[in-house]
C-alpha cells in the first residue's frame, strides 16, 4: 500500500458515495449530502486517531495484531457517530443517506490504509494526515456532487451522458491522483 493506491481509492470511494443516493434526489440533495458525508468522515477519522492515540502505548503490550486496534477504533467511532446522528437528526440522516453501513465503509476504507501507511510516525503527522485525507475526500465528494450539472453544459452524445460520463471523470481523477500519490 502506498499513496499512489490510497488516493485513487478515495476517488473511487467518493464516486460510489455519489451513487448511493436515489437518482431523483441526486440533483437537489447532492451538495448537502456530500458536505455532510465529508464532515462525518472528518469526525470519524479524528475520533479514531484520538482513540488509537489514547491507547497508543498500550496496544503493543496487549499483544494484539498491529492493525486490529486502529480497525476497532475506526469501527467504534463510525458506530458512535451513526448512533449520535440517529439520536439527534434521524430524518435528515435518512434523507441525506448517512446510514451506518456507509459511515462504516467510509471510515474503514479511508482510515485503515492511512494507519497502515503512516505506521508509528510522529504525532504531528498523526494529527495532520487524517485531516488532510478527510479534506481531500470532502473535496472529491463535492466534485462528484456538482459534476452532473457541469457535464450538462457540454453537449455530450447521449450514450455518454449521465452515468458513463461520471465514471469516465472518476477514472480520470483517479489516474491524476495516482500520479500525485506516486510522487509523494
Amino acid at each position: 500500500m502506498n499513496f499512489g493506491l490510497y488516493l485513487p481509492l478515495l476517488a473511487g470511494l467518493a464516486c460510489c458515495n455519489h451513487f448511493r443516493l436515489p437518482p431523483q434526489a441526486r440533483m437537489e440533495q447532492a451538495l448537502p449530502s456530500a458536505l455532510a458525508m465529508g464532515l462525518a468522515t472528518t469526525i470519524m477519522l479524528l475520533c479514531a486517531s484520538s482513540l488509537s492515540g489514547l491507547a497508543g502505548p498500550g496496544h503493543d503490550a496487549a499483544g494484539l495484531p498491529p492493525l486490529l486496534w486502529p480497525l476497532l477504533s475506526l469501527a467504534i467511532s463510525a458506530l458512535l457517530l451513526s448512533l449520535g446522528l440517529h439520536r439527534f437528526a434521524a430524518r435528515q440522516t435518512q434523507q441525506l443517506g448517512l446510514g451506518w453501513p456507509w459511515l462504516l465503509t467510509n471510515s474503514l476504507l479511508a482510515g485503515l490504509p492511512l494507519q497502515w501507511l503512516l505506521g508509528p510516525a510522529g504525532s504531528a503527522m498523526q494529527l495532520l494526515a487524517p485531516l488532510l485525507s478527510a479534506a481531500l475526500f470532502t473535496l472529491l465528494l463535492v466534485q462528484f456532487a456538482t459534476l452532473p450539472q457541469r457535464l450538462q453544459r457540454c453537449a455530450l452524445p447521449s450514450w455518454l451522458s449521465g452515468q458513463p460520463a461520471l465514471l469516465l471523470c472518476a477514472g480520470i481523477i483517479a489516474l491524476a491522483l495516482h500520479r500525485l500519490g506516486v510522487c509523494l
Binding site: 448537502p32 455532510a36 437528526a89 435528515q92 441525506l96
Partner: peptide
C-alpha cells in the same frame, strides 16, 4: 455537521 444538517432540514 450540525449546521449542515439543520440547513438541509430547512431546505428539504
Amino acid at each position: 455537521l450540525g449546521k449542515v444538517l439543520r440547513r438541509s432540514a430547512q431546505q428539504l
